[in-house]
Amino acid sequence: MKKIVLLLGLLFLSVNAAAIAGTIDTEQFGHHYFNVWKATQSPQATKSDIQRYLSLLKDDVGHQHLPYDPDATREADGKQRMLEGMLYYLGTHTEYTATLATVVVGYQVVVIKYNTQLAGKHPQTGELMRLSYDTVEVLEIEDGKVAVIRKYSE
């Protein structure tokens, strides 16, 4: 009987330790996410930077960018669609800086706020851009990866 109790106790401890090991430090994740995102916007950004960013996302990631794109529906090809969009804009910035203002965490969510200043040329219109704006991103986390991105900026 003692062996069964001991075995059950060890089993409980190992399952509990595995569950703890499977969780992520959401505040640290928020800082990492921001730095990886920022690298994708740099004038020297590469496809590898984009792949590094996409590795933080679920395959069926939903992406909402208000006020431009109000739909955050998760689709099976969400990550692939983000890749295509990011490759389209890759290299359009001639200047890019972003400063992280805050990281706020909650249950399975990370909220980051940052300021962006950029210059570049729009790939479709050829229009020269010089912008400065604040962004708030709400990252919904699932299984240690971003499942939904809700981005608020102008």
Score class of each variant (00 low, 15 high):
Asn115Leu: 02
Asp59Cys: 03
Leu131Pro: 00
Asn16Ser: 14
Gln44Gly: 05
Ile149Pro: 02
Ala72Asp: 07
Val36Leu: 03
Arg52Cys: 01
Leu118Trp: 02
Gln51Thr: 07
Met86Lys: 13
Ile4Val: 13
Gln108Thr: 06
Leu100Ala: 12
Val146Phe: 01
Thr23Val: 02
His122Asp: 15
His32Arg: 12
Gly106Asn: 05
Ala39Gln: 15
Asp69Ala: 14
Thr135Ile: 10
Tyr107Ala: 12
Val15Cys: 09
Phe34Gly: 06
Thr40His: 05
Ile20Thr: 13
Gln51Ile: 00
Thr40Glu: 06
Gly9Val: 08
Asp77Met: 04
Gln44Val: 09
Glu75Asn: 04
Asp49Pro: 01
Thr97His: 07
Ser153Phe: 14
Thr102Arg: 12
Tyr53Pro: 02
Gly9Asp: 11
Thr40Gln: 05
Leu128Gly: 00
Ser55Leu: 01
Val111Ile: 14
Val138Ala: 02
Tyr53Gly: 03
Thr73Gln: 13
Val61Ala: 06
Thr40Ala: 04
Thr135Ser: 09
Ala72Asn: 03
Tyr133Trp: 11
Leu56Val: 05
Gly85Ser: 14
Asn35Lys: 14
Leu131Gln: 13
Leu13Gln: 06
Tyr68Cys: 02
Glu142Asp: 15
Tyr88Glu: 14
Ala17Asp: 07
Gln80Asn: 12
Gly78Ser: 10
Lys121Trp: 01
Leu131Lys: 12
Glu137Met: 07
Thr23Gly: 10
Gly62Asn: 05
Leu56Lys: 02
His32Met: 01
Leu131His: 06
Ala72Phe: 05
Lys151Arg: 12
Lys79Trp: 01
Gly30Cys: 03
Leu11Gln: 08
Met1Leu: 05
Val5Asp: 14
Tyr107Phe: 02
Leu56Ser: 11
Thr23Phe: 00
Glu27Pro: 00
Leu13Thr: 13
Ser132Glu: 14
Met86Phe: 14
Glu27Asn: 12
Leu54Ala: 09
Tyr114Lys: 06
Pro43Ile: 15
Gln44Asp: 15
Ile50His: 04
Arg130Phe: 01
Gly62Phe: 05
His65Pro: 00
Ile149Arg: 02
Val103Lys: 05
Asp49Met: 03
Thr46Gly: 10
Leu56Gln: 10
Leu139Asp: 09
